[in-house]
């Protein structure tokens, strides 16, 4: 079918704009979600100690905390945890591996918090 009112240039323009639009929407809806960036944020008393991109981590990394007590944080590709702590109840160590956006481990005695942030968080916060 040929619509004489459209010139070839017009048709090319319309089709290319449509293709770009479809591509963009597709990229926004699926692309970002699938290739989610996971970042671990380590704070002490509300101050940033370290930020680690867990997706790009090639070798395991260990972070020592010495004040006010001794703790070790272990980061591997896609996950992070408190691996050792001298605090009394060791709730931070028992929390285990943090693997997804929104996961968090807290040590109240040392005021150290590991939070994993990224897009696609299923919830805003947790009631416990």
């Amino acid at each position: 079918m040929n619509i004489p009112m459209f010139k070839t240039g017009d048709k090319i323009l319309i089709v290319s704009i449509l293709i770009i639009a479809v591509f963009f929407i597709g990229w926004r809806s699926f692309g970002v979600g699938r290739d989610q960036q996971l970042t671990a944020v380590i704070t002490q008393n509300g101050k940033l100690l370290k930020q680690i991109n867990l997706n790009n981590l090639q070798a395991a990394e260990s972070i020592d905390i010495n004040q006010p007590l001794h703790q070790v944080i272990l980061a591997e590709k896609g996950r992070i945890r408190f691996s050792e702590s001298d605090c009394p109840n060791k709730i931070c160590v028992k929390t285990g591996w943090l693997t997804k956006a929104g996961d968090r481990a807290v040590c109240i005695p040392s005021k150290v918090v590991i939070s994993v942030v990224g897009q696609n968080q299923k919830m805003d916060t947790v009631s416990y």
């Binding site: 028992k94 929390t95 943090l98 929104g102 009631s127």
Partner: peptide
């Protein structure tokens, strides 16, 4: 609305049972 996770009472990690 805000989405609030409800803690899984028998999970040592921060797992939830619902939102």
């Amino acid at each position: 609305p805000w989405k609030i996770g409800i803690q899984n009472p028998r999970s040592e990690t921060s797992d939830i049972v619902g939102v």
